[in-house]
Design a protein around this nucleic acid. Structure first.
Lengths: 242, 242
DNA sequence: CGTGAATTTGACTTTCCTCAAATGGTGTGG
DNA sequence: CCACACCATTTGAGGAAAGTCAAATTCACG
């Protein structure tokens, strides 16, 4: 009774496993379990013991942290190829956040204990993990800088540009769309504002022909204009007097 | 002509070098250069090539990031025993921030290239670094959560409590003081507000007997009250009607 | 179709920033 | 040792940005 075969092509191009030999990739996959998720399903929840770590193969996930008062903050969205749930690699016993599927998704799960074996066989894995965490620290500091010094419109522009960069799908005539369902509330939780303010900003941008809005979708018509806002152009919320 | 001897007791109790043998500690120290800093001196500046990494032996440093518009954000304060400047360990070529002495300080500097040798001899070092960076990521996320969901007074309370925890000096009768010079501007740059607002908040707290203020100093008389504010008690900025 | 979630929009309020000015403390050079 | 210059801090007044509260509207899905 063998588990269904997972071919190494699934993971061989992933950042974290770069430079692993074919043999080692195969050995690694022997301990991986695939899990399918439907929209809204949780991979794990904040506070649980970090028994597994994961790679996303397909779909999109949302990492959220809840505050003591029950509000939420979106930490990041996970794209295919990303590792997540690596608390134990940092010697943390529990998961610091909850991970939810926003689309149908497919992940590979490894028992956290497997990490030790993998590292023993492949010392540069720790270095890869360190690089990954270092990049996340970087982008967390960027967010802190933005939340500290920029206004809401600017932060929303940045957030959308970042999402386009990470998961943008180009359709006809330069229209770029965020390739997964995302609500105004989500954007608010990424930028430290309210869904009302996000809605107002998107409405304004629509009037100016910069975006098109739909339910759980954002379509950008003029990315260059968005870049201008992100870099601090005054949105001049109040139309100037004639 | 030998370099001045550095004894291993200087670094043997430090988180990053835990579990290194005495021999290895000695070997490590052979490549370390001590540097003395006066208040205001920079250890390195944002954007420089990350040629060295460091441990702080004595004093206090401030890590700051400048925005494109010239504003500043305080990333963290460095206390004795902390490692910093570890960009290269994360495979980043340059320093992402500037580090300034806020007091007379003493650091040990290693050429970044030394890291390779040390890791080769002591594989668990990478794990230690991963843990350290993981903790910083954690606390960056806490800050994002706070900036996104809390009001200024609450954030200032938290910032001060964190500083007390990190560098509090207890004097007589439960008075705790932040053990290095810190300005209202610094606190503002830690919490995403202005020095004016920080000043107003501290003045209010003084009226209520929670703190005592002096130039470049914060003395806390009632830490428990501060904890209440940090956890969301309404400061009720406007005194209630009689 | 109807039901509920997502979104939009308006009116009002609050928080906090900006601008301005005065005050207070420190260390330094004469 | 004192005076002055500079930095840090305080405080006030006014205004702007964004939150809150409330309600209507739209849309997708069952």
């Amino acid at each position: 009774m063998t588990a269904p075969k997972l071919h190494r092509s699934l993971i061989q191009n992933m950042e974290m496993f770069r430079a692993l030999s074919d043999d080692e990739l195969d050995r690694t996959l022997e301990h991986a379990q695939p899990r399918r998720l439907l929209p809204g399903d949780a991979v794990y929840r904040q506070g649980e013991l970090a028994g597994y770590f994961f790679i996303l193969l397909h779909g999109t996930l949302k990492v959220v942290q809840a505050t003591a008062e029950g509000e939420q903050v979106v930490v990041r969205f996970v794209s295919p190829g990303d590792v997540f749930g690596i608390a134990r690699m940092m010697r943390r016993p529990d998961y610091p956040a909850t991970v939810l599927a926003v689309q149908e998704s497919l992940v590979l799960a490894w028992p956290s204990s497997e990490w030790e074996r993998m590292v023993a066989a492949n010392p540069q894995l720790t270095g890869n993990a360190l690089q990954t965490v270092g990049q996340r620290l970087q982008s967390a500091h960027s967010r802190i800088r933005e939340l500290s010094t920029e206004e809401v419109e600017q932060r929303v522009a940045r957030a959308i540009l970042r999402l386009l960069d990470q998961s943008g799908r180009t359709s006809d005539e330069g229209r770029i769309e965020i390739d997964f369902p995302i609500t105004r509330q989500d954007i608010a939780e990424m930028t430290g504002t309210t869904l009302h303010t996000v809605s107002r900003i998107l409405s304004l941008w629509k009037e100016r022909g910069i975006v098109e809005n739909a339910r759980k979708r954002v379509i950008v018509l003029q990315p260059d204009e968005l870049i201008r806002y992100a870099e601090g152009a005054q949105g001049s919320r109040h139309p100037e007097p004639a």
